[in-house]
Structure formats: C-alpha cells, structure tokens
Design a protein around this nucleic acid. Structure first.
Lengths: 210, 210
DNA sequence: GGGGTTATGTATCATTTGATACCGTCTAGC
DNA sequence: GCTAGACGGTATCAAATGATACATAACCCC
C-alpha cells in the first residue's frame, strides 16, 4: 500500500504539514496478520512502529511462563523500539499482532531529529514514555502487593469497563499468560468466583455478573 | 545557597550557555538531610528536582510493606516529577533523602519549553525516561519470575559489583523493604546462604564471600 | 461420525512465602 | 551501669501458589 495523506486521518497527533511530509517520505506501511511476531526479545531494533489499525501485544517471557506488559493500539507506539532508537539497545520484550494490524514503520534515526523540530512529535514521544511508564508502574505495584485472585478480579473489571461488555472472550490459559501465572491457578480462582456468583464460566469466555 | 556557575561543574549535561542562564534564573537549591521526605504518594508536584549531590530513594508503599523503585543520584532526576510536569498527575511513589542531599529545584512549566529549545535538555529528559523505564522493567521481570532468594542474591551481587566492596552495610529489615518482603523471610534466606558459606552475617552488615 | 486438539474441572501434593510469637544480643544515650 | 530500642535467630503455623496428573467436554476438520 502506498502512503497517502489519508494516513493522517488516522494519525491525528501529527498535524504539522512539514512533519507529515517527512513521515510520507521516510515511512513504510507494514501489514501484519494475527500471530505475526514483530519484535523478539534480544533483537536490535532500528525502526519505530506506530500502529495505525489493529493491536499489538507486548509481553515478557521466561521459559514457559509469560506476562503481559501492555498493548499497543492505534496511534500508539512501543517503548522497546523507542529505547532502541535513542540508544544502542536490544528489546527486552516480545511483540505480537493480536489481529490484522497496519503499522507505520519509521527509521530509527529520524526520531531524535524530529524531537527538536516538531512539537507534536515531541509531545507524542513524551506521552508514550509517560503512559508506558505509568502502566508498568501500576503493574509493578499490583504484582508486588496484590494476591493473584485480586489481580484476576481487576483484570476482569478492567475489561468490562474498557470494552463495555460483560462477556470476556478469553481462555483460562491466555488469562494465565496475561498475569504471569499458570492455567490451573486461574481455573481454580475463577471457579471460586463462580461459586461466589461473581461470574459465570463458559468454554472460551467469562460472563461477569453485576 | 546562591546559584552559581559552579553548579555546572557538577551538572555537566547542560552545556549550552543559554540553558545555563535559564537554569540560574529559574532554579533554586534545596538542601535535605537524611530522612527528609521530599515526595509523597498522591502529592501533586509542580517542580522538578535534579540531584546535585547525595542520594534519594524512591519507593512504593502499601500498608506496612514497601518496595524500592530506584535511587536518584547526582545529575539524575525523578520520573514522578517528570510525569507531573508534563501532565496533571500525582506522584505514585515516595521519595526520601538517604544522606545529606543538595537538590536543584526547577519549576515544572519550564520543562516542556526547554524540551524544544535545548538539545542537551532534551537528551537529559529522554535519557531519564529511558533509564527509569529500563530499571523498572528489570525489576518487574524479577518480581514476576524469580523467587525471593534469587532476588536477594542478585541484590547482594549488585551491591558488591557497584560499590566494589564485599561488605554490605544493611539490616535485614531494610533489605526486606528494598525487595518488598518481610524481615523474617530475609533472615531465613540469609541464614541459609550462611550455611552454604556464601555469606557471613554480622549485626548491621553482610559479608559476601567469593 | 471419528480423531485430534483445545478448553476446562479437579484432586493431590510440595514448596514458597508470610504471619506471629518469643527470645537473646547489641548499641546508643543517659 | 541501666534501659529502651534496634537487630537478628528461630520455631510454629497458615495460606498462597505451583506442579503434576488425569478426566471430561467442546470444537474443528476431514
């Protein structure tokens, strides 16, 4: 697909005409399908991916366990690449497409340059750093102080709040991987919640009661 | 104490003369003694503290448990304030002086402004974001995947490596607070290490063997 | 509908971590 | 020297979490 001015209907953050033409000049569009691994732990990155449409999941892995760091949605980018772009740095996490995803790929070298030239770009970068930091800090606080059943509860509540749906389409195994634990632990906790009439369990999804 | 050009012998990052004069114009020096609490969780911050000399400890607290986030040493600043400065935001952590500490205080509003005007300032801010993020990510990975005895071990090894001393002056309780656990757990683990001849325990300090 | 795969339920057991309690020792300040 | 408080050792118990194993059910593909 060619880059076009249409792009900026989706990326509203970048309003300066000059920045837009620089993006058109240096950027490429990448289309990923569900399951494509875009970033691997240890990999050196020399590009910055900005999601246009779709969703990336960024997570850490250790042996057969994994834990969610954050999702990258439209108009967002990924900390790992940002770090790599400024300093020599290899990714500390993995990134995978959760659904068909369109990504604007920018070469790393432009980032520092644009930082000083374009206020909206600068704001975009700072905002990314800040919000990713906040998310991580929240996750850190949770894992440090809260027992798993509370984290499960908060995950479910968070989903309901964000998606405005009581029906959460997730398997026990996937949920375990979001929270950094194992399937049996999640099944046990969910069953307990069901006994307490907080949720109803089905194959492939969880119904949260109010 | 008056601000003077001497300041920039200690803060080497800020080399532009114009930036220096802006710092002299807007900055104030604060002196803290050991134990002074400079930042409290929930507090709205409208200043950015840059440590000139000394050390701040930034940590999260929940009831009677706490866990270390990071230390702020000379020429460094603190993420909480940085976040507050860009957005309306209250601190998610506490900051306390560990020793007599001199701090350059800058009003929040200058930060975003200087971002675009002064490349060294820009670099300083980005570097802060990145290194704090990396630290937190490492800590997150540890707490998510590693059992406490491993984290204790890594803490001790890290100290030895950084301070180039085998003698670590820390009480069991303080160590527990660094790692987000309780004193008894730490005592138990250290005693086990001693039985394994890895360390030798004394009142107030730990001797690491090689 | 058969066969493989995925999802879930659940029991058993071990390990890790934490809570509580009590003790003795060291140290600083008087 | 006395004493309060900090520091460290340890025993006991409980709870949380994880590992393993096995069974059943649902789903998909052919």
């Amino acid at each position: 697909m060619d880059l076009s001015v249409d792009l900026f209907k989706k990326l509203k953050s970048f309003s300066e005409p000059e920045l837009q033409s620089e993006i058109l000049k240096h950027g490429k569009i990448l289309k990923a399908i569900k399951g494509d691994v875009l970033i691997k732990e240890g990999q050196h990155l020399n590009f910055l991916p900005i999601v246009i449409k779709g969703l990336l999941r960024v997570y850490q892995q250790k042996e057969d366990r994994e834990i969610l760091l954050y999702y990258v949605g439209p108009e967002q980018t990924c900390m790992m690449s940002l770090s790599s772009a400024y300093f020599d740095y290899s990714s500390a996490a993995n990134g995978i497409a959760m659904e068909p995803t369109e990504i604007l790929i920018l070469p790393a070298h432009v980032i520092a340059e644009w930082q000083l030239k374009y206020p909206t770009w600068n704001r975009f970068i700072i905002k990314t750093f800040k919000s990713r930091y906040d998310e991580l800090l929240t996750a850190f606080g949770s894992i440090a102080f809260k027992p798993i059943h509370v984290r499960v509860k908060e995950y479910l509540n968070g989903y309901v709040k964000n998606q405005k749906s009581q029906k959460i389409p997730i398997s026990h195994l996937t949920l375990a991987n979001e929270l950094g634990t194992t399937r049996v632990v999640i099944s046990r906790i969910l069953k307990q919640f069901e006994l307490e009439k907080k949720v109803k369990l089905f194959r492939g999804y969880i119904q949260v009661k109010n």
